[in-house]
């Protein structure tokens, strides 16, 4: 029982982690909480559905959905946030909430407001079967897929951030924007890259969730977004490894909370975690003290 909860919580945690890195990277470079990030996650699922119904094979549909979501994330920044770069922080925050509502409603217009199933016929039949079984714990092939994709994406993301020129520019920008500009770094181009990267990861999370639970609906990004944001705060907002750790810890905490308290408490766990972190350790598990960022 406990072991199975841990397996399920870990799976969910990886999904949160994939979404949380998008929040944390964007916060790192422009200090904006991109509330519309949950909607990018939702769009990932619906775009995959649409590409599949156009007759594309699953892998191609997934890749195209990630690319389209990345483009939408970039557009969001250019249209909604870039004009407010010099404005008070609150203006951009409210705009982000507005964009979240806008994208939700746009999805309702396009795909309807009722939940839709993931097209199961596009998935190999064995996906829902157990891949591994130890005594009373089972890990399904679907869960194995989530582990594999999440690990590959996160290792890849870490390599991009730590080893490439644009990744180093991203980190430089997050640490001192004026200095980054004085190095000749095109600040807006790096911000665009950040949105694209975060959005693609978030979309992939939405795609896998819709396969895992076999459902998608236009408001699915709201709660997932709040929880992933809580995970980012738990890990230390601005820290990419922190977001990964925070996601996994939150996923496990939430599943255990649902299992041992009662399931209505499930969603409360994320809020409780966020409040506790803000009170006792505002810099999060792996974050730096906020005051350091002078």
């Amino acid at each position: 029982m406990l072991e199975q909860q841990l397996v399920n919580g870990f799976t969910l945690g990886l999904i949160y982690a994939l979404i949380a890195v998008g929040y944390t990277m964007v916060y790192g470079v422009i200090e904006l909480i991109n509330f519309a990030h949950g909607e990018i996650y939702m769009l990932g699922a619906f775009l995959t559905l649409s590409f599949i119904s156009m007759g594309l094979p699953l892998p191609l549909a997934v890749v195209l959905a990630m690319l389209a979501a990345a483009a939408i994330g970039v557009l969001l920044d250019i249209v909604a946030y870039r004009p407010l770069r010099e404005a008070p922080r609150l203006a951009a925050l409210i705009t982000a909430i507005g964009m979240s509502i806008f994208l939700q409603n746009l999805a309702m217009i396009i795909w309807g407001s009722r939940p839709l199933p993931f097209p199961r016929q596009a998935l190999p039949a064995f996906f829902s079967e157990p891949a591994l079984t130890f005594s009373d714990v089972t890990i399904s092939w679907m869960q194995m897929l989530i582990y594999a994709v999440a690990v590959v994406l996160m290792v890849g993301l870490n390599l991009v951030i730590t080893k490439t020129r644009v990744g180093t520019a991203m980190r430089a920008l997050a640490q001192n924007q004026t200095a980054a500009a004085l190095m000749g770094i095109n600040v807006n181009r790096v911000i665009t890259f950040t949105f694209a990267l975060g959005s693609a990861m978030g979309a992939m999370a939405g795609i896998m969730v819709s396969m895992y639970y076999n459902t998608m609906y236009p408001t699915m990004g709201y709660l997932a977004g709040v929880k992933a944001f809580a995970a980012a705060v738990l890990g230390g907002i601005g820290s990419v490894p922190g977001a990964m750790l925070g996601g996994v810890v939150l996923g496990i905490a939430e599943t255990l909370g649902a299992g041992y308290l009662s399931s209505p408490y499930r969603d409360g766990v994320a809020y409780a975690v966020m409040i506790l972190v803000i009170i006792f350790r505002p810099s999060g598990l792996l974050g730096r003290a906020v005051t350091e960022k002078a």
Partner: peptide, 10 residues
């Protein structure tokens, strides 16, 4: 720049 503005975590 004034105040050096090196990147502290690079």
């Amino acid at each position: 720049p004034e105040g050096r503005m090196i990147f502290p975590r690079l």
